[in-house]
Amino acid sequence: MSTTTVLVRTGGAEWSRIWSVRSSWILAVVTAVAVVGLGTIIGYNAADEPSGAAPGVSAWDRGQATGMFALFGVLAMSVVTSTADYGTGGIVPTLQWTPRRGALLAARAGVIAATTALLGVLLVAAASVAVWTLLPELGLPAGDGTEILGGLGFVFLSGALLAVGLGLALRSTAGGLVAVIALMLVLPMLLEQLPYGWAVDLSTLMPGSGALYLIFGGGPSDDVTTTSARLTLAAWAVAALLVGGRRLLRTDADR
């Protein structure tokens, strides 16, 4: 059987596995309620402000603020779906059905990351539409939408790959969630608050700082740029996948 056929079949199986787990639906619904709900709140608050329809500000700009909520949903769903069968023991028949572990790694990382990232982008788009419904004068220019959603898509995809890599490395849902939350939220904010230059410099190297910069346009240091933030996120995602992938490829499922 060709590698392409194995990848296609394994990808289809991974897609079915994601949506056959109840936790995936719960996380998707909770994230949708949080993101679209926040977009609605932003629209209501902006409608009451004199600057709600400031020149140059579109509904996409307002909706972009919901990106952090969407990101945490993406991260949580990525960790849960990448580790679920380790907790249930389902990884053993999975490896028996797909003995080519490289194909399983590619299919699992690709399908989970693409699915969760697309979900995050769609939810931010829905939140932006909610803002526009309440403030139609802001408009929904296609150019702004492409730029903002494209940028957020990169953040979501990188974050999802990071989460999958950590999940495969730790083989624990709880451990994966703790690790990804620490890297994306706790450590960057903690280091940024310390009164030491080295701590701020270290904070800029955290993936969470890159995500925050790309979503909100600000970071722990003035030296952070869009390019450096994207490179930081991409580097962490690749490193996590290398570590997690190596454990999947080289060690037994029960170790």
Rank of each mutant, 00 (worst) to 15 (best):
D201A: 11
L38A: 09
A76D: 10
T251F: 06
T116N: 14
V131A: 00
V36F: 03
T225H: 09
G176H: 10
S78M: 06
S203G: 15
L38D: 04
E49M: 12
T116Q: 14
A65M: 12
R250A: 13
S228A: 14
V30N: 02
L38R: 05
I148T: 07
S82D: 06
R100Q: 13
P136V: 12
S209Y: 09
G120F: 11
L138W: 03
V57R: 08
A229M: 09
T3M: 07
S209D: 15
V21D: 04
F154P: 00
T98A: 14
V121H: 04
S20Y: 03
L105Y: 06
D222F: 03
L185S: 05
V57F: 01
S2L: 05
G12V: 11
V21E: 14
S20F: 05
R101T: 08
A32D: 08
Q64L: 07
W15A: 15
A47S: 15
L27Y: 06
T5Y: 07
S203V: 05
F156A: 03
S24R: 08
L249E: 13
L95E: 14
D48H: 13
I112M: 07
A235C: 07
W19N: 05
F156Q: 04
P141Q: 10
G245K: 12
S128A: 15
G217W: 10
L152R: 06
L166Y: 09
P188R: 10
A126V: 02
P136S: 11
G153M: 06
A253L: 05
A125M: 12
A103E: 11
I26M: 08
S209G: 05
L231K: 09
S78F: 04
G139S: 04
M184D: 04
D48Q: 14
F69V: 13
D252C: 00
T40R: 00
A47C: 04
E14K: 05
G175Y: 02
V36R: 01
V79Q: 11
L157I: 04
T146F: 14
A239E: 11
T98Y: 03
L138G: 01
I181T: 15
G120T: 11
M184H: 13
L149V: 09
G139C: 05
R9A: 14
P195C: 05
L149D: 07
V186Q: 03
V124C: 00
G153V: 09
L123I: 01
L212Y: 14
P188W: 12
G67M: 08
D223G: 04
G217C: 06
R246S: 13
T4P: 00
V36G: 00
T251I: 02
V155P: 00
Y196W: 11
S221N: 11
R100K: 10
L194H: 11
F156L: 02
F216V: 10
L105E: 12
G43N: 08
D252Q: 13
L187V: 15
W25T: 02
A59C: 01
T146Q: 03
V200L: 10
A53K: 03
R22V: 10
L202I: 04
T81N: 15
S16G: 01
R108L: 15
G150H: 12
T98G: 00
L202C: 02
G56P: 09
A46L: 07
I42Y: 02
A239V: 13
L140F: 02
E14A: 03
